[in-house]
Design a protein around this nucleic acid. Structure first.
Lengths: 160, 160
DNA sequence: TCATAATATATTGTGCACAACTAAATAAGT
DNA sequence: ACTTATTTAGTTGTGCACAATATATTATGA
C-alpha cells in the first residue's frame, strides 16, 4: 500500500506532493481505524466529532459546530438530520433568533458518552506511536493548517 | 477555525482524538489548497494523483493504481471513467488477461504534464513549513500509517 | 477435465465534503 | 420606516471513499 515512491521512473515526485499524499493517506487510514470502534456506537467519524462537541456543552448552533469542526452547512445539515433520525439529537430553531438552529443531545445521545469513553484509549493503542511523537505530529499539523488558512484568507482578501 | 480545544468544558478531549482531528482537518485543508491550483488543469486531487502515477509510467492497470494509491475499484472505476470522458486517458481490457483493464494517458493527458510541473512549487510556497519540517512530518505520518496498517492486517488475520 | 478458488473490475448504496445557490430572518444605514 | 447588507440554514449537484455485492476471467487441484 501507499506508494507514490520518490525518484523511480522518468519524473521524480516533488516533496510537497509527497507530504500531501502521506497526509491524505494517513487521514484515511486513521478514519478507517476509527470505523470498527465507532460502528459499535452507530456513529461515523464526523458524527462522532459532532457528538464530542455536544458532550462538551450543549445546546450548540449549527454555525458553532461548523466553526469548530471547519464544516459548512452543506455537510452538517444532512449529518445532523441523520443524528436526529438516530434519536441522538434534537434540532430546534431558537425563539429569539429564528435564523439559528440549536442542536441538543437527547438522553440517548447523552448516555452514549459512557460507551464512547473507551474510544480514545482503543485508538491510542492502535496508533502505535508515542505520546511525544503524537505531540510533535500535532504541532506540525497545526502549523501546516495555520499557514494554509492564512493563504486562503489572503486569497479572500485579494478578492475583496 | 479548527478547534475541539483540549480541557475546557466538562469533559476533556483525549490526545489520540486530538491527533486524529488535526490530521482530518489538515488533510482537508491541504486538498482545499490544491483545489484552485488543480482546477486550472481540470483535475481534482485524486485525479491528479492518478495522472502523476501515469506520468511516471504507463500503461498501468486499475489494480496497480489502487495498490499504489490505496484506493479500491469502487473509487477508481468512476474516477477513471471521468478522466476518460475528459479525454485524458483510455481504458482497454488486456488481450492476454481479460480481467485486467489497462489505463493509458492520451496525448492530451501526457501533454498536461508540462502544465502540472508548476503544481508542486506552488504548493510548497503555500504550505509555509520548512523542508526539514516537511520531512519530519512525512516520517511521523508514515510511521502512523504503517502501524495502522498492521492493525488492519491483524484484524484480517484474526478473521481468517 | 471439471469443479472450485482466486483475481480483477464494475455496480449499488450510503455518507461525507464542498461549491453554488436559495430562503428567511436580523442588523445597519439613511 | 425602509432599503440594503449580513447572517444562518438548507438545498442541489458533483465527486470522492468505501462496504457489499455481482460478474467475468484465469488459475488450481482432485
Amino acid at each position: 500500500m501507499t506508494k507514490l515512491t520518490g525518484p523511480s521512473g522518468s519524473g521524480s515526485v516533488a516533496l510537497s506532493d509527497l507530504v500531501c499524499f502521506d497526509l491524505y493517506s494517513a487521514a484515511r487510514a486513521i478514519i478507517r481505524a476509527y470505523r470498527p470502534i465507532l460502528s459499535g456506537l452507530g456513529l461515523t467519524y464526523p458524527q462522532y466529532l459532532v457528538m464530542v462537541m455536544l458532550w462538551q456543552h450543549a445546546p450548540r448552533t449549527v454555525k458553532d459546530l461548523g466553526d469548530n469542526l471547519d464544516l459548512d452547512s452543506g455537510t452538517l445539515s444532512p449529518l445532523l438530520k441523520r443524528l436526529e433520525v438516530s434519536g441522538l439529537v434534537t434540532r430546534r430553531r431558537r425563539a429569539d433568533d429564528e435564523r439559528t438552529v440549536e442542536i441538543t443531545p437527547t438522553s440517548k445521545g447523552r448516555s452514549l458518552e459512557r460507551d464512547a469513553k473507551r474510544v480514545p484509549l482503543e485508538m491510542a493503542t492502535v496508533m502505535g506511536i508515542s505520546e511525544t511523537e503524537e505531540r510533535k505530529l500535532r504541532a506540525l499539523l497545526r502549523k501546516l493548517s495555520a499557514s494554509l488558512a492564512t493563504q486562503v484568507d489572503d486569497v479572500a482578501t485579494r478578492v475583496a
